[in-house]
Amino acid sequence: MGQQSQVSRDESLTVRDNRTGKTVTIPIVDNAIPATAFKVLKASRKPGEREENETDKGLRVQDKGFLNTAVMNSTITYIDGEAGGAFPQLSFAHFILRAYTTPVPVYSASLPYQHFETEVLRHGILHSDAQGFFRSFRYDAHPMSMLTSAFAMLGSYYSTANPSLQGQRLYTRGNEEACAIMDRQIYRIIGKATALAAMAYRIRQGRDFVTRPNGLSYTGSFMYQMDHIGEEDYVPNPVLEKALDTLFLIHADHELNASCTTVLQTGSSLVDPYSAIAAGCASLYGPLHGGANEAVIRMLISIGSPENVPAFIEAVKRREKTLSGFGHRVYKTSDPRSFIVRKTADEVFKVTGKDELLETAMALHDAAMKDEYFIKRKLAPNVDFWR
């Protein structure tokens, strides 16, 4: 009659397929069930039913948009959407890598941080051909378009890192040699990421490219490559460097967001790491992900000045305008990162001074937070509003 399983009734889900009367008991682990467990629920195809349904091969689970699907377990981060808290237990890239690679016995899990930092900074230099690559873009090309292309380009320089050229088990052998090869690509990707981003920025500014100097931090080197225009003994402003470092840290890990999922899925084909990161950048490009902060800037520019905020608010309520930077798919209260960015912004503007765009943002924030329309809908500012 029904399929029985050696599973505790208290920690399981029993499902009955009314098409066939078949019953299956599925274990519940960490408040989740495996989607593949439903494949045993097979039925005969009805007359006229689409062959593509593959009804006789088992029931499928449909979840458009990953609205209620967990694709992996994490031991280092948790978002409580109702409480508005993100809890990354480990912040630095090095420790994130250690956490994600444990308990898998990989080489990178045992590397001391000092070695990790040295290797990342050592791999921050780009091949001279990269200059020609960036100069091939239009002067007004979008930075994310350039960065996405640049990561894909970077992979073409390291044939030894490409499973398509070296064999599909290049990274999956699990021995020390395979893990050391992966470590080297991690150093390169993290080390060169800021150099690529700085080059994309300077193309837009019409400036020559700058090689990072020795002696600066990872974030300080990035600022140097973006801002240095020939000044003698130029050193990045420490307040601005700390602010950018803070932004790097709070964005280092945030559960399985769109770009992280994209990298995971792309990497599952055993493509080279650079192509996987390029795919992640493409996902980050979108206005519903990393591009949201750009949408905020465009919105603030369109508002123009603080006195125009009330009219904009009313237009949003009439659904004539879009309010960017408020609300979050997971957080049902304020995005906790927004408070950190807001505080950091205050410190930055003590150095740079305020401008009308900031005044408009503050007026919009205050108006929206007091309006019953936004309060009822739990539309609080997220990290993109202040970033």
Rank of each mutant, 00 (worst) to 15 (best):
V263F: 03
G267Q: 03
S268W: 01
A258F: 14
T266Q: 02
L244Y: 09
D253Y: 02
S259E: 12
F248D: 12
K242G: 03
T262S: 05
S259Y: 07
N257R: 01
E255G: 04
L249V: 15
A258Y: 14
T246A: 01
E241T: 15
V263G: 03
L244N: 04
C260M: 11
V263S: 04
T266G: 05
V271N: 11
A258C: 12
V271I: 08
T266L: 07
N257E: 11
L244C: 09
A252L: 02
E241R: 09
I250W: 13
T266C: 10
T246G: 00
A243I: 13
L270R: 08
E241M: 09
H251K: 00
V263I: 15
T246H: 00
L247F: 11
T261C: 01
C260D: 11
S269C: 05
L264F: 15
T261L: 06
G267I: 08
E255D: 08
L256D: 09
Q265T: 14
T266P: 05
T262K: 02
L256N: 11
H254A: 08
D245T: 15
D245I: 06
E241I: 11
I250S: 04
F248R: 08
T262E: 06
L264N: 02
T261A: 08
A243F: 12
F248W: 11
N257L: 04
E241P: 00
I250N: 10
S259W: 07
F248A: 06
L270P: 01
L249Q: 15
G267V: 13
L264Q: 04
L249G: 06
A243S: 07
V263L: 02
L264C: 04
K242F: 09
H254T: 07
D245Q: 15
T262W: 08
L256E: 11
I250F: 13
H254N: 09
S268T: 13
S268G: 04
L244D: 08
N257A: 06
N257F: 05
V263Q: 02
L247M: 13
D253N: 04
K242S: 10
N257G: 05
A252V: 06
D245G: 10
N257C: 06
E255K: 03
L244A: 14
H254V: 04
E255F: 02
L247D: 14
D245L: 03
T246I: 01
V271D: 13
T261R: 10
T246C: 00
D245W: 06
N257Q: 05
V271P: 02
G267T: 07
E255Q: 03
A252F: 09
Q265R: 03
F248E: 10
L256Q: 15
C260W: 07
T262I: 07
K242E: 13
A243M: 05
L256C: 04
S268L: 04
S268C: 05
G267M: 11
N257W: 04
V263W: 01
A252W: 12
L256I: 14
L256G: 03
C260Q: 06
T246R: 02
H251L: 12
V263A: 10
D253R: 01
T246K: 02
D253W: 07
A252H: 15
L247G: 12
E241A: 10
G267F: 09
H254P: 08
F248K: 03
H254Y: 05
L270A: 05
L256H: 14
C260Y: 07
L249T: 15
E241Q: 13
N257T: 12
T262P: 01
D245P: 00
